[in-house]
Design a protein around this nucleic acid. Structure first.
Lengths: 217, 217
DNA sequence: CCCTCAAGCAAACCAAGGTATGACTTGCGG
DNA sequence: CCGCAAGTCATACCTTGGTTTGCTTGAGGG
């Protein structure tokens, strides 16, 4: 066995440990949540306002956001909408001392993973955080896969893209040639390039990669 | 032009119009919701308890369920869990006069499409119903497609299933023959039968059909 | 006992996929 | 203006896919 790797190894420039972001204007609550997460070994960073969070250089790591609904300036719900329009899809856990049902329903419909009322039980928060992190991890896996495929597809020439589209539709080389008004050999040539560039060896794999391509992009 | 088809044509034994199911122990509320839906041309049936609903022969039509959370016997939330375990995935809109945040959050996390507090604005209920029906329609489309594919797949012999699995993995006939310990011609034979039985003409289409097969079943 | 069905094999054949090699045109940026 | 990338085509050759015909065998049901 190698010597104990401790909590962080030297060569890890990018950590994959979860990082939880907390926004609450109440200092005591911020500290309480940070401590709670610390007690189960989850790293977190706390901010007094959404503006502070947006200014901060937040590392790209799996995690979630814990938001007080009542915040100075932009409210929690509005911030949720804002993040979505910015393309930031971090799972959000809301917490608040003063909430009504319509507010919580609105947040949940907008995609929040949980909505806790203060004071909450420690275990409820920990459960919510764990679930949110799991959700983010899964989302990141999907996104990474999609981006890898997109990167490959980006190297295709327009013609190759057309040929690929027809291939995944199940068309024969002959038919593709007819559709595009070119000869069959040329289709085979493009087709071969597509297979190499997309790094697949079978039509089956190509179909699956093309699938994630138009589901995401 | 044929004579006006009116609101229902004679040959329509199965209607595709939405049907909303309502469960509330308050007679007045039941009637109010039925009338409201009636006013926008949506058919509905009301029940005084979940037991009544379960006993009734409810036609299989797109729609949703409007549930009071507080119900005699089985509560609304428990009924939601119950329906899920029965494989009934009708979208649920909760309504209640006495609700707290945890209750609404729990319902939403369990998949409810909305949660309204009485008294609610007519428009809020209509919006919720419309959204729920749209969700159910989309769900039914997916399910129908999946069942069609499963029906086709059910006609496959065990061997054909194995061959199909390998084909969609992108394996060559030669490799499949090796894996299954049979000759290449036999693989081609099975493969041809698979294509006919699954009603596809290209590997691409087969891959897509096989996809919905192991995503659902 | 016979029939059916899943499963298998072989030979032969044709269609489709895939890979060179070599050559031509066009359009764009340095 | 030169070079390069994209796109095109032809010829030739080989591999893979797919069908047909004919025949065999074993398991299960009427």
């Amino acid at each position: 066995m190698p010597p104990k790797a401790a909590s962080s190894s030297v060569q890890d420039s990018v950590k994959d440990d979860p990082l939880v972001l907390i926004v609450d204007d109440d200092d005591g609550m911020r500290e309480a949540v940070v401590d709670l997460l610390q007690s189960v070994g989850i790293e977190s960073r706390a901010f007094g306002s959404t503006a502070e969070l947006l200014d901060a250089a937040v590392p790209d790591r799996p995690g979630c956001l814990i938001l007080d609904v009542r915040l100075p300036g932009l409210g929690g719900l509005e911030f949720q909408t804002r993040l979505e329009s910015l393309g930031i899809a971090l799972p959000i856990i809301f917490m608040t001392g003063f909430a009504d049902v319509p507010m919580s329903v609105r947040a949940m419909k907008a995609g929040a993973t949980d909505f806790l009322i203060k004071p909450f039980r420690d275990q409820d928060m920990l459960d919510a955080v764990e679930s949110a992190i799991a959700r983010d991890r899964s989302r990141r896996r999907d996104r990474t896969a999609a981006m890898t495929v997109e990167t490959l597809a980006a190297t295709l020439t327009p013609r190759e893209r057309e040929v690929m589209a027809e291939v995944v539709k199940g068309r024969l080389n002959k038919q593709i040639a007819g559709d595009l008004g070119i000869s069959e050999v040329t289709v085979k040539l493009h087709r071969g390039k597509v297979m190499r560039k997309m790094q697949v060896r079978s039509v089956a794999d190509l179909v699956r990669k093309a699938e994630v391509l138009d589901h995401e992009g």
